[in-house]
Structure formats: C-alpha cells, structure tokens
Design a protein around this nucleic acid. Structure first.
Lengths: 268, 268
DNA sequence: CGATAGATTGATACATTTCAAGTGAAGTGG
DNA sequence: CCACTTCACTTGAAATGTATCAATCTATCG
C-alpha cells in the first residue's frame, strides 16, 4: 500500500542548491501560504523539495480542476482564490461539499480515481503536485505527512459540521452559518495579507464576508434552491442583520445575532 | 487488496518480546481486524507496540464513548459492533454523521476537545489508545501513520457522499442508500468472519442488511423523522424490494432496483 | 399481565420547492 | 450611443414532500 521510500538527502542543506531550482525555492519562501497548513514547519530542505515537486498555476474562474471518475493524478494546494468541490447525481442534482480557500489542499481520493469534482470559483492560484511525487514527499518528510494528516482531519470535522447543517438546520440557519463561514474566510485572508505586508493589522471594526460564489453555488452548498437562498438573504437584510456591499461582499451588521441564528437559538 | 501477510512463525522466541506483553501481542495477532485499515501492514514489532499502547474494552449498548466538548484524550479502533458518531444543536436536534463498524477508528479531533459525540449502538469491542501514546506510535511507525491517513481520507470521502445524500436526495433515495450501506457493512462482517473461521465463504445468495440501530438513529443519520423513515421502509416492503427478517436484519430482494433508487434513477 | 420502548399508520400543517414573472447590470453589435 | 441579449438575482403565487400531531400496534421485560 504505502511504498516505504528511503529518505535520500537529495539536497544537502546550505550547500549548492541547484541553480535552476533557486526560483522554485524562492516561490515557496515568498509564498503567502508558506506557514499555512501543509507547508508549515518545514525546513529549507523540505521546502526546496516541495518547490521542486510542484508547479504553480493560475486558473481563470470556472476552470475544471478535477473531474469525478477521472484518474486521480494531481494534488493541489490553493494559494489564492476559492475552489468549489462537489458531487453530483446522474440527473444533474449537485451538492457542493466544500469551498477550498487559500491554504487548503484538494485532490486526495480513497481510490485511484477522483471521488468528486472541483472547479474554480474566481481566479485561483494553486501549487500542483503529481501523485507519485506527492507520495515521495510524504515518505521523505514526516512533518509534511503529519501536516496532511492534520489537514484532512480538519476537513473531516468541517464535513461533520456541514452534515449537521444539511440534515438538521432550517434555511435561515443554513444561510446564517454560511455567512459566518465566509466572514471567517475573509478575516483569515485579511490576516494573511496583513502579515505579508508588514502592516499593522487594521483594527477590524467592520465585519465583512467574502462571497465570491453565485447563488447557485450557495444553494448547492446549503442543500437549498437559489430562490430560497435569495429570499433568506433578503429577509436578513430587512432585519438589518446584514447589509449589501459591492459585488461579492456582504457586511455583517449583527454578528452576535447571526451566530445565534446559525446555532438555532433564535428564529428572528 | 489482500495485504502482504508476514509468513514468519508468529512467536519466534529470539525476538525477545517482554513476557508480560505476550498476552497483549497475542490479542493483536489473533484479532479479527488485524489486517484491516489501521493495523494492516505492521511488522511484529509494530504490532507489539500497538498492543502495548492499547487496551481492549467491551462496552454495552448505549454507552457514551466520546462527549462533544470534552478533552480528546482517547482514540479508538472498533473491532466488533457499531458505534454512532453525531453532532447536536443546543435545542437537541441531532445529526448522526456516521456509523463506525468493525475496522474503523474514531476519536480524532482537530482541537484538544472532541468536536463530536460517540455512543455504542450494540455491544461493542474497541481498542483504546491514549492520545500521547497514539502520537508516539504515529511517529515511530510510518506504516501506522500512513494507514491512519488513508483511513481518514476514506472517511472524508464517505462524508462527502453523505453530504450529497443529505442535501440533494429524496426520502426514498436516502433510505435506499442507507440500506445499501448496511448491506455492505454486513457483507464485510461476513467476509471477515469467514476468513477467520477458515471456512469457505458461503456463496452469498441472500442479500441481507445489518441494521442494529433504531429508527431514531436512522432518522438522525438521514436527516429525516422516524415517521418518514418508517413509512419509506414500509413502501419498499410493499413494492417487494425488501423484506423483513428477524429483529435487526432486512433482506434485500431487489438490490439492483435499490441501487437505481439510491442513485436517483428511479422513483419506484 | 401491565408497563414501557420502538415502530407503524393516518390526518393535517407547513417550510421549502416549483413555476412564473420581472429587475438590474454588464456586455455586444449595429 | 443605444437597442438587445444575457446572466445573476429577486420577488410572488401555487404546489408538494416531509414534518408534526395523534392514535395504535407490537414486542420485550419486570
């Protein structure tokens, strides 16, 4: 099952890193997501190996990254933008199982074909790994494998939370939960950007949710129809719990209230 | 599929296993689940370490194994029976996120407190690990860590399938999918038992689903009410797709039809 | 044998879907 | 520069699948 690869030291630290690989390593060293999830805790040698084994891609909105049933040859780490993961029924009904924001991986599958599809929501940057090289990295760098284990565990916990939402929450509770998720996603993005700008983290007095996806995607994520999503968002706006902003952002006026709604302690 | 078994005599005295640990090692060597998931591919040293670090427990039906919010101190590997995992809302609404049948683990959590609850459905046998010892095992035995990574990945894929069910399937499709899951669970159990009996695998001409859980559990797993579950099962019985057996077993008369229903290609 | 828990069945209610129409913004071509 | 299309979204009215409320049945167990 797991080929126990030898940890051959193919890049002696400190000594001459292959010139043509310098650019690769730089890419990792300067990456926004360098200390996030998969890539955290790696020494220079590990980072160099990661850099060598991956390729950075920029993908326009609506790009299919993974198709259900196709051979699972690639593995991705998202560094910018949002990717939607989904499963479909033969008649076209679709369930979005999650959104992969910067710092998250995608592409693991229990078999040799993908068990899900993936498509970019907006413009997305990823690091792409090929399967065999990924397995080598896992074997060679225990920290990397541990990071992946932790990341998959996180995703599993998220999936369980989403099952609670899908199975037991009302439309209003679903939308409230979603907006809070997107608030958190935006806050994380802000924090990451601030850290790399060396700027002071601007005191977040405004609560803003990043919602780059369409109503169709939201509906397919929450197990609702687009009409119900639209109506529910309108209702929250009428109740002054949220407010419209530019294109793909929503302001959260009453986060505490929204949290109460999301956890089923208030019906508004 | 079949893991490469060690063919060596399983207790060569030369290897100096500590005498007081012999019983522990025997427990692992004779375990039904020895070659399943987490415990597969381990050499004798690894198996001995596993045996030493874990304790076998037998738990009666309805035992709380894990409570949401409590410190995540234990990790379990199920060797017999079925455990239900769930998340709840403050007002008591509950979603069962999965059933852990023999060979499956439970107890991983992204933080230091459990993000879910777990309770035995019937009489359950588990191997219990304490957190610190588990981490030691993961670090010491790469095969073990890889097994866990594979197992968590499997569970994540299952969770995604269940999200599709919860968000997009009708009551009838949900129940059909559930019965097929339970058919597979029973078939796996049969296969395991047969392998350890050294008996020929009895030609499975009858398709039987093992359903040890109550209607309440089924409803909380499928995002339905007990009434809807009951009505739907009755409808399938009326249509001669399934038939009643003793207490907690259901016979599948038309597996192909059930599969079509489960995947949304037929409404019956 | 009565008590209790699990399961079934029926009648009604309701949350969400479905069907339908309409709005507004962005892009296109004459 | 302005009709015209398109796409995402919103809103309304009617339909429906599942939930809720309620009664009954069955099996197990003290």
């Amino acid at each position: 099952m797991a080929p126990p690869l030898q940890t051959s030291a193919f890049l002696s630290p400190g000594l001459g890193v292959h010139p043509s690989r310098q650019a690769d390593l730089q890419r990792c060293l300067l990456c926004d997501q360098r200390d996030a999830n998969l890539c955290s805790g790696l020494d220079k040698q590990g980072l160099a190996a990661l850099a060598q084994s991956s390729k950075r891609l920029v993908l326009p909105p609506g790009t299919t990254m993974v198709e259900e049933g196709e051979p699972a040859v690639s593995f991705f780490n998202v560094t910018q933008g949002t990717v939607k993961l989904f499963k479909s029924l033969p008649d076209g009904r679709r369930q979005i199982t999650g959104f992969a924001d910067p710092g998250q991986f995608l592409g693991l599958s229990p078999s040799d074909v993908y068990s899900f599809g993936a498509e970019t929501v907006d413009t997305v940057q990823v690091c792409r790994f090929q399967r065999p090289q990924l397995e080598g990295l896992l074997s060679d760098f225990p920290v990397f494998e541990r990071n992946l284990l932790v990341a998959v565990t996180d995703r599993l916990a998220e999936a369980q939370e989403q099952m609670l939402l899908l199975g037991r929450k009302t439309a209003k509770e679903k939308v409230a939960s979603f907006l809070l998720d997107r608030l958190q996603a935006h806050e994380r993005a802000q924090a990451t950007a601030a850290a790399h700008d060396h700027d002071e983290p601007a005191a977040t007095t405004e609560h803003v949710a990043s919602v780059p996806m369409t109503r169709i995607d939201i509906a397919d994520y929450l197990g609702l129809t687009i009409e119900t999503v639209s109506r529910t968002i309108s209702a929250l706006r009428r109740e002054k719990i949220i407010a419209n902003m530019e294109n793909h952002y929503i302001q959260i006026l009453a986060p505490a209230t929204l949290r109460q709604i999301a956890s089923g302690q208030q019906n508004g």
